[in-house]
Design a protein around this nucleic acid. Structure first.
Length: 578
RNA sequence: GCCCUUGUAGCUCAGUAGGUAGAGCACCACCAUGGUAAGGUGGGGGUCGUCGGUUCAAAUCCGCUCGAGGGCUCCA
């Protein structure tokens, strides 16, 4: 167990004080566990009734009072019997006690009226805690010991810092996260919607969202061609034998939409694209001269995610993977892995993600395929990651049963990690579908198969992008790149000319000819986070110019139209933010 | 699936101790033609998520159900 930092100690001790305060309110409460966590702490209780916000206020006041009293935290080593007797009416503590290995010292910590079974460490006294530096945040349900078979407890989450200033900074950070929420911005910027009445977890892309998606997809397709991929399109449903052969019906059935029967055969909506790409592979006798195949598809798949797991665009039931499958000979493996990783990084960088961390997952206990293959593939993954100079962690035994993999996690603008790219070896499907290629020596051999997704799923990636940019997309992605804002009706003809000109240049333009006042038009464009606003009136008309107001608030008046076009083009081409 | 919270006009939200619904924005109409974040006036729009119960009377109380949010679990 890692040594606890001072902040961990503070948080853990604050959790104990919270438990004391809760027991003051509910003397009969059963207490479970209360550790420190990132940014705070929690404690789980079994309570006689549901908590309200008022309860939290009372608990908070109790806690502050306890902190002011300055009660020492006292550590005490006890025998198991002593502990068992002390916690006779605390069933969870008794269970925890039983789980402590024989021979390990049992310790209890006391402060004021509260004593907990706890290995510590804690601060010296409750007066070392910071009344103005903590806040109880929310109430949630949590299973005892994290198992859904067990009793659901009430968990109170809190945050704690060494000063009121740090607390405020953290609360500001939480507010920032809320402002960036892609569900909120998706509504405000009119990007997408979800309709429970039409099916939970299924996404509707509005025109403005679709424009962003198309910009992403166009870029994605072009880059794939440049990197030697071919595009394929495959069906959305397939007969059950495909999924029996692939093993999905065996291992993954509860994650699939239920079957549709037609002509006495069950059809399933695809949860993955692999079997379909394999069908294309199977369509002919393959030679080593043909390999590698790199087949990519923006393939829409359907998976049954539990209702409680659905979350905006980040967790949905129908989504589009930016999928590709590589069929390679064993001696092409190294080179192909290098290329896939390089390509992944290039894509992520293009979208403004610079901070990238790799995770390599190796052979688990239960797996298919020979050990030599696993080792060779794992080594290839490591070599690739090292060659790109990426920091990486190894998750020993964390691979899927069918092969090792690399996952790439990016950090967004406010430091949150998201897993996007994944590159996975598959020793299973080539076997199950009996894939072969004819090698130089005329012998049929098994190809290697690599699954990879660079962005993950378009929906999820889009959600991450919205939060990363807080809705202020760089011009190349922005749904509207330019807003034309004529000051008065006299400038409408000029506005229309400009609009035509910009469209001819390939820009996405909105021309605001409404009878709003200019100020209102600016406000609207600003709220839609349009990067360039062009204010035009008599002055600009006379000189064939535009006045540019940037989303950032900067203004430049009297700009020649061609100079403006060149400026925007450069930003778009370089995928730069303004 | 489980726990807690929650569901009132397109959106954001008010609705005090139960007496048959309000605001702002958006939308429509008219007036106003305006130089860097909301011009004015008027208007249309809701069976208060669904079903059932208590009551003379329910958006307000109770039950069921369907969603959503925060968690837990799950994510081969």
């Amino acid at each position: 167990m890692a040594r606890e930092t001072d902040l961990d100690k503070l948080r853990h001790s604050t959790a104990h004080v919270m438990a004391e305060a809760v027991l003051e309110l509910f003397p009969d409460a059963q207490i479970a566990i209360g550790p420190s966590i990132e940014n705070g702490f929690y404690y789980d209780f079994e309570l006689p009734r549901a908590l309200t916000q008022e309860d939290l206020d009372v608990i908070t006041e109790n806690m502050k009072a306890i902190m002011k009293e300055g009660k020492p935290f006292i550590r005490k080593e006890v025998s198991r019997d002593e502990a068992r007797e002390f916690f006779a009416d605390q069933k969870y503590k008794l269970e925890l006690l039983d789980a402590i290995p024989e021979g390990e010292v049992v310790t209890m910590y006391n402060q004021g009226k509260f004593t907990d079974l706890c290995r510590g460490p804690h601060v010296e006294s409750t007066k070392d805690l910071v009344p103005e530096g903590f806040k109880l945040l929310n109430i949630a349900g949590a299973y005892w010991r994290g198992s859904e078979k067990n009793q659901m407890l009430t968990r109170i989450y809190g945050t704690a810092w060494t000063s009121g200033k740090d607390l405020r900074a953290y609360l500001d950070h939480l507010a920032d996260i809320e402002k960036r929420d892609h569900r909120k911005l998706g509504k405000e910027l009119d990007l997408f919607s979800l309709h429970e009445e039409a099916g939970p977890g299924l996404v509707y892309w509005h025109p403005r969202g679709a424009r962003i998606r198309l910009a992403i997809e166009d870029f994605w397709r072009n880059e794939h061609y440049k990197n030697g991929y071919e595009m394929v399109y495959t069906p959305h449903v397939g007969k059950s034998w495909l999924w029996e052969t692939s093993g999905h019906l065996g291992f993954y059935k509860e994650g699939m939409y239920p079957p549709m029967e037609m002509d006495n055969v069950d059809y399933y909506a695809k949860p993955m694209n692999c079997p379909f790409h394999i069908m294309i592979y199977q369509n002919g006798k393959r030679s080593y001269r043909d390999l590698p195949f790199r087949w990519a598809e923006l393939g829409t798949v359907y998976r049954y995610e539990k209702a409680g797991a659905l979350h905006g665009l980040l967790r949905v039931r129908g989504f589009t993977q930016d999928d590709a499958h590589l069929f390679v000979t064993p001696d092409q493996m190294d080179e192909e892995i290098m290329e896939v990783l390089r390509f992944s990084l290039y894509m992520l960088h293009s979208f403004g993600f610079k901070d990238i961390h790799a995770y390599i997952s190796t052979q688990p206990e239960k797996s298919v395929g020979e050990k030599e293959k696993w080792d060779a593939a794992t080594e290839a993954l490591k070599r690739a990651v090292e060659k790109e100079g990426l920091e990486y962690d190894i998750d020993e035994g964390g691979g899927a049963f069918y092969g090792p993999k690399i996952d790439l996690k990016i950090k967004d603008a406010i430091g949150r990690e998201w897993q996007l790219s994944t590159v996975q070896f598959d020793f299973n499907l080539p076997e199950r579908f009996d894939l072969t290629f004819v090698d130089k020596d005329g012998v049929e051999k098994r190809p290697y198969m690599i699954h990879r997704a660079l962005l993950g799923s378009i929906e999820r990636f889009f959600g991450v992008l919205v939060e990363h940019y807080a809705g202020a997309f760089p011009p190349w992605l922005s749904p509207d790149q330019i807003a034309i804002i004529p000051v008065a009706a006299v400038a409408y003809d000029y506005a229309k000319d400009l609009e035509k000109k910009f469209r001819a240049e390939g820009f996405r333009v909105v021309n605001d000819l409404s009878d709003d006042r200019m100020n209102a038009k600016i406000r609207k464009a600003q709220k839609m986070k349009i990067p360039y606003m062009l204010i035009i009136g008599e002055k600009e008309m006379a000189n064939g110019q535009v006045s540019v107001r940037y989303r950032t608030g900067k203004q430049v008046n009297g700009v020649d139209v061609d100079a403006f076009i060149a400026e925007v083009k450069e930003k778009v081409e370089n995928k730069e933010q303004i």
